[in-house]
């Protein structure tokens, strides 16, 4: 089976989640996938795809993240490789790019895939639906199939191997769109990619009280998130909002500080492997979804956690 992986780059390298997608692709039927990388990166970083099972990397150097151009790159790469299964991670960028390519090719697309496809009888994938509250097993019937895997369901472990890197050119058409300005927080851990997330809710009492939470995040090497009321009140930027209408995270560890656990918030975090809840209200609904809980004042608990984390 010819398999193509649409990957994402950050700081000149593959994102961790994209390495997971490459690993996933290499395990579908054992054949080595081809990787498409669009953006900015150097050849050494791109060749890293080989360690995760890729045979070749097609690299298109693009200064700006334009969805129309990225999806044309993907379509051209599908045409060049004759790929029948296209894999990416589930992310806002991949959603936009994969959707345009699948729409053009009249192909089935399934998102939030959690396991390798079952090819014993047709092509059946399992995916998470209802924001993690259920799973579906679905047969994909089109000749070309698009799969977007959920972050953190596949282990990306380097196993050696080399990939050749080829520059990849195509006729790009921004379709009348131009990017005027890009604002990106630099030097911060990416929230959707993070292994550990420390999040704060209204129980943090105000933006000026965020330091203890930031201290714990720093000690753990964690990204920071927040609840919807906190971003609505502008205590924290919108891109930190975790929940049904914000970022959906799937870290190994999610620590919620002063968040009561409204169902809309849970929808954004229930894919986390381990959930810790710190809240002064023992009746907070979040404790029902948690693995570990502490009933107490966040401003007393957080410094203790930070101290213990620094001692690790």
């Amino acid at each position: 089976m010819s398999i193509l992986i649409f990957t994402e780059l950050a700081d000149g390298k593959f994102k961790k989640s994209s390495l997971e997608a490459i690993s996933y692709g290499s395990k579908i039927d054992g054949s080595a996938p081809v990787v498409l990388a669009v953006g900015t990166a150097d050849e050494t970083s791109l060749a890293e795809a080989g360690q995760y099972g890729a045979s070749k990397v097609l690299f298109s150097s693009q200064e700006q993240e334009n969805i129309m151009v990225y999806s044309q790159a993907l379509l051209k790469a599908i045409e060049t490789t004759g790929a029948k299964v296209i894999v990416s991670v589930k992310s806002a960028l991949a959603d936009a790019v994969m959707a345009r390519a699948a729409g053009t090719l009249k192909a089935a697309l399934i998102g939030n895939v959690t396991e390798l496809p079952d090819t014993t009888n047709g092509f059946v994938v399992k995916n998470s639906i209802f924001s993690g509250k259920a799973f579906a097993k679905t047969e994909m019937k089109s000749e070309v199939k698009f799969l977007q895997i959920k972050k953190n369901v596949v282990e990306a472990s380097p196993e050696g191997g080399n990939a050749t890197v080829e520059n990849f050119n195509f006729a790009a058409d921004a379709m009348g769109s131009s990017i005027i300005e890009t604002q990106k927080a630099s030097g911060q851990l990416s929230l959707p990619e993070a292994d550990i997330v420390v999040s704060g809710g209204r129980g943090m009492k105000g933006p000026e009280h965020w330091q203890p939470l930031l201290d714990l995040a720093q000690a753990l090497g964690a990204a920071t998130g927040c609840s919807k009321p906190v971003s609505d009140l502008d205590w924290r930027p919108h891109h930190e909002h975790v929940g049904q209408t914000g970022v959906k995270v799937a870290p190994n560890l999610y620590i919620a500080c002063g968040i009561s656990g409204a169902i809309q918030h849970l929808a954004g975090v229930n894919a986390s492997k381990v959930i810790v809840v710190i809240n002064k209200d023992p009746e907070a609904p979040f404790f029902k979804a948690a693995d570990y809980g502490i009933v107490g004042d966040v401003f007393e608990v957080l410094p203790k956690l930070t101290e213990a984390a620094k001692a690790l």
């Binding site: 129309m68 999806s71 959707a99 729409g103 939030n112 769109s177 049904q244």
Partner: peptide, 21 residues
Amino acid sequence: TDYNSGVVHGMVAAMLGLPSF
């Protein structure tokens, strides 16, 4: 908010030859 796929807009745009965001 049921299937959370987030791809219908991109597919519609591709089918109509329009930009999507």
